[in-house]
Amino acid sequence: MVLEVDGVKLETAPWDPRFPNTNQTKYCYQSFLDYQRCKKIRGEEFDACQYYKRVSKSICPNAWIDKWNTQIEENRFPGNI
């Protein structure tokens, strides 16, 4: 969704038909995972990776992202990156 208020572009994660339920936990996790995979292959600055980063940032709670980043740093993240 993109919304313009007083010339400022407000943007949040779009509807994703893979995650039709009210509970969006897996949308958050999948986007985070996709961002990490994209980052690994293309680097942090790559344009297409920014989309996943934005989606995970708007859907996931900050505490979760912090936790997962710590897990990645300590090499104990359970997902396949």
């Binding site: 936990t25 897996k26 996790y29 995972l33 359970p78 997902g79």
Partner: peptide
């Protein structure tokens, strides 16, 4: 679940 990183069997 996400605690398993959406993997089965887990890592």
């Amino acid at each position: 679940s996400i605690e398993l990183g959406l993997n089965w069997p887990p890592k």
